[in-house]
């Protein structure tokens, strides 16, 4: 019966913590590039997880599990978007960027043009403040892979921004 109690606890947490889960997942989906679909994906992810909460063995891993579901759905959504080329050149794209006064379109472009896995790792760790282990769980990779992706992303950004920093005598 202990297991049943745990399951009831998980179901209750969906109801009690719905707003917090929703806000957390919406931010995650936006950061991953879901844009205006972020709220829909977050809600679908919570409903999906709630229906399948019996699959969760360890209650303490509820949030990482939710994030993984939301991330997977976001990546699926982005793949569909790319296939259909739905985004016109005049449509705004939402991106997470450093709020540094020196950030310009050049820098924004450098960040958004990072290879997808590197960009995702950068956004999860630097924009959302996830630990590398948490980012690894969301991306379904190992912590070492996240560290490697961050290292590569830093090098790519440095190469992109080398001329920009020199021209403006930064830093």
């Amino acid at each position: 019966m202990k297991g049943a109690n745990v399951l009831v606890g998980v179901r209750e947490r969906f109801d009690v913590d719905y707003n917090r889960f929703f806000a957390d997942l919406t931010t995650l989906c936006r950061a991953l590039g879901a844009g205006s679909a972020a709220e829909d994906i977050a809600q679908e992810s919570i409903l999906h997880a709630r229906e399948r909460h019996t699959q969760l063995r360890d209650e303490s891993k509820l949030e990482p599990w939710l994030r993984r579901i939301a991330a997977r759905r976001t990546f699926e959504y982005l793949r569909r978007q790319r296939r259909h080329e739905a985004c016109g050149l005049d449509d705004p794209v939402v991106a997470f960027l450093p709020s540094d006064p020196s950030v310009s379109v050049d820098i924004a472009a450098a960040i958004t043009r990072l290879p997808e896995r590197e960009r995702v790792a950068v956004v999860l760790v630097y924009a959302l403040g996830y630990e590398q282990e948490e980012a690894a769980a969301v991306m379904s990779v190992t912590r070492g892979t996240v560290a490697t992706l961050l290292h590569r992303a830093r090098r790519h950004l440095a190469e992109h921004l080398a001329a920009y920093a020199t021209e403006r005598d930064l830093p």
Binding site: F96, P98, S102, A127, A158, H160, L170
Partner: peptide
């Protein structure tokens, strides 16, 4: 210089912005 700028950007607070595609 590129590394210095990169580190400064990564250490900054991030926020969500809209940019034209």
């Amino acid at each position: 210089g590129g590394y210095r700028l990169t580190d400064r950007l990564l250490a900054a607070q991030w926020r969500e912005v809209k940019l034209p595609a």
